[in-house]
Design a protein around this nucleic acid. Structure first.
Lengths: 250, 250
DNA sequence: CATCTTACCTTGGTCAGACCAGAATACATA
DNA sequence: TATGTATTCTGGTCTGACCAAGGTAAGATG
């Protein structure tokens, strides 16, 4: 009626549109014909070559971007990249967004990661790691009365431990999990004022962990760390029971 | 000069185009104003409302789809979903596509997860879990001479252990990591024929792990599991050194 | 009046062609 | 040769359109 209808529609193989393009690129990426550093051909050309329109191609590209396998650089091109761990962060963030009840569960994973990492740290940590740990330790002591700073210092120490483990995978996972826990339990540290004994616990525990790492004793390091988590958990439990906790949501 | 320039460009807040839309939706999703099950308003309306064109909105939606937070259903609408762990699989698949050298590193993470899980399993496992573990154990014995089946049985047992830990997060992570290791080390089990002593090791170790769980002894369970991994690692090392390993890639 | 048909509207899926702005590069000039 | 400018990419985005199938409500039927 109105006008044109010659063209359009299934040009060739596979799925339909986006699906096809995504699968195509995915395959290329996984197979290795496209490797990190490579630059894809211009969107217009690629779209034409794949028999889809540019918007569709862009959807696929964007999808890959989210997965961290490619990077679309404005006015430069699309570059293949080694997947960025931050993707996990995105995922976990969404996955555990409202389910605050799973925080404890995520914590189990964090404990798992850290306990393994601390073992590795005891074996692999370098002098530089020792220094970083020592600094983090000092920060914990300095900020013991400051909820915000203290929390940050605490996380820094634990991150330093994991980093000292020299396992890329553990580091990535730990970062993701920490992010979730941070977001969820922003004010967890606030109960610090409640138990004064907690201060010494915080300082002493971290110091013992540090000592264990320096002492190259994986077994002991893990035990101390586990204990550390257990005690922290206990404090939290007591706070939850003994007091009506004040909470603040933004 | 040429002509029109009234419209187009920065309609309101934030970033530019895609970035803005993605951020907007992300915030909505994280904040909870959009929760699983909800259906977004039609693309056209949403696009107009956000001040972007439909293709751009679709890029954002597609990105969220990859993250598993929404599902675009043809001719129905866009539905908010609870992120699916399979996303992790996607990510890891890409992340470790060609980097087979990081397998050992991923293994560290798997050990971390399992060691924590086995502790939880020792505490939380139900009778049903015991049964499943027992069955897996039986399978290991039965398939001890079958490389393929044996490998599967092995994985099943370990998965059963993690499941018995009752931690969703650990289960998800373990699945992802196992997937990678499976893909990478398809024929790892082939060196079974080399060391005959390995057979008894496989059977005995798993039985001891099982016993520890049934015995409700987290400490012991972890120790045995760790030992199990260490010995397996040792076998592998010996195989690598002592023999020119035959490898087969598909 | 209840049920079944059917036409219409909605909604995602896709396309084509256009314009912008800045990066890359070629080229002309000093 | 060095430098500065013009041209060409290239991604980023917009507009407006068409298609096909899901939903739905009006109309036909028993």
């Amino acid at each position: 009626m109105t006008a044109d209808l010659e063209i359009t529609r299934l040009r060739e193989s596979g799925g339909k549109g986006f699906e096809k393009v995504f699968a195509f690129l995915r395959e290329r990426l996984l197979a290795g014909s496209l490797r990190p550093g490579d630059r894809l051909i211009p969107e217009r050309d690629l779209a034409a070559q794949l028999g889809v329109s540019r918007p569709i191609l862009r959807e696929a590209l964007r999808a890959l971007t989210v997965l961290g396998v490619v990077e679309i650089r404005d006015r430069v091109g699309t570059i293949v990249r080694r997947p960025d761990p931050s993707v996990l962060n995105d995922f976990f963030t969404f996955a555990f967004a409202q389910q605050s009840d799973v925080v404890d569960d995520v914590m189990q994973a964090r404990i798992a990661i850290e306990c393994q990492a601390v073992r590795l740290a005891a074996e692999r940590a370098t002098v530089s790691d020792f220094e970083r740990l020592q600094q983090a330790l000092a920060r914990i002591v300095d900020t013991i009365d400051d909820p915000d700073g203290g929390s940050a210092a605490d996380f820094d120490f634990h991150r330093a431990v994991v980093n000292a483990g020299k396992s890329e995978t553990l580091i990535v996972l730990h970062n993701s999990l920490s992010g979730i826990l941070m977001r969820s339990h922003r004010g967890r540290r606030e109960l610090l004022q409640v138990f004064d004994s907690m201060k010494t616990y915080l300082i002493e525990d971290h110091r013992r962990i540090f000592d264990a790492i320096v002492g190259r004793d994986p077994e002991h390091a893990e035990r101390v760390l586990r204990e550390h988590f257990a005690i922290g958990d206990d404090f939290r439990r007591r706070a939850a029971i003994g007091e009506s906790d004040a909470r603040s949501a933004s």
